[in-house]
Amino acid sequence: MKSTSYSKKVLDHFRNPRNAGTLTGKDIAKGTVGNPVCGDLMEFTLKVKNNRIQDIKFRFFSHLVGKSLDDL
């Protein structure tokens, strides 16, 4: 896609990603969605305590980075 066809908000998230990275330690769950073959893969790590999400981080290999972030 052309850079100009993404919204400002999406581009802002692309430039300054929130919650990027990986969580480690106790009570961590990990999930991935997508496939690098198609050019979009996201990985989430969640810290869950008492059935509540305490923290969330993600990494990506994707052209839909910003869009995915926006969806969060």
Partner: peptide, 14 residues
């Protein structure tokens, strides 16, 4: 390795 071209293109465009 490990990165996707459009992210690269947009980052360089910035």
């Amino acid at each position: 390795d490990g990165i996707e071209g459009e992210s690269l293109l947009l980052s360089l465009n910035d």
